[in-house]
Amino acid sequence: MSRADTATDTATDTAAGAAADTGRAGAGTARPVAPPAAPAPAPGLGAGAGRGPGAALGLFRSELTLTFRRWRSLALLGILAVLPIVVGIAVKIETSDGGSVGGGGGEGPAFISQVTNNGLFLVFTSLAATLPFFLPMAVGVIAGDAIAGEAASGTLRYLLVAPAGRTRLLLAKFTTVLVFCLAATLVVAASALATGALLFPTGEVTLLSGTSVPFSEGLLRALAIAATVAASLVGLAALGLFVSTLTNSGIAAMATTVGLVITVQIVDTIPQLDVVHPYLFPHYWLSFSDLLRDPVYWDHLTKNFGLQALYTALFGSAAWARFTTRDVTA
């Protein structure tokens, strides 16, 4: 049993720009060879990158390509892209006889009754429909797999042999998950926008408050909503990353993260537990719809952002504490 005490991040910070890519290239055949690091001192990843932002960027890039080349990630994004199409076609079929969705009783996902007025609303409906489960599931899978997946496949120690540093690796992983959050949300929004524009009329958008805005402003609001939805998933990303540092089984980390999403959402619906509701990360998820009011109602939006920041700080630091102090055995 050989023990290799190797460079920790503290050691790395004193070392000059570490060649993370070299380490990654030697990490085994399972991992693709990353493109060389940017030679120029590119804008670093911010805190923790210390010296050698180029190396950090390289690490991040290789993580990014790795994540987005996985079949698993592509399949998740594919499902997310198909969902708005299914919703759009279903609404089209149901309303083809001139009726309204769900008999006009306001049933179904949010905004669905407005889809027939304006295809843009399919974006909001799709985001509202995917936000409770599909989007967090996808993020949970990616975040849960981030560290634990490496550990399970035995590649984590090779990553750590390279003098990239644990903090930096964690940051690269977290940033990748954040990019995935944004990508997943944009995939839903783009697919919904295309479907909505094809199947339904577009034009002046009537906001929830009854005021009308031009389509261009509607598009801007849709973009802001997509960004808000992506930001709503940040807290979950940090939570998943923390779970991922706890175990050496990628499946266990994914299952735990997705399970947590479901459990927390159930707790969020139990009226007897309303004391804790404002502190649950999904509690203000639907606040993105407040961007569709006129004037925008910021109360819940700011609470949502604050909550996500809190979860990120809490579980991000917990993940950091755990990951930089634990023994990596695989």
Binding site: T8, A11, L314, A321, D327
Partner: peptide, 23 residues
């Protein structure tokens, strides 16, 4: 079985203090 561990385990408590402080 190879084991890679951080070389300064005494920092462990200090590091865990960060999330606790955040909370």
């Amino acid at each position: 079985m190879a084991q890679i561990r951080p070389n300064k385990p005494r920092h462990k408590a200090v590091r865990y203090a960060v999330p606790v402080a955040v909370a």
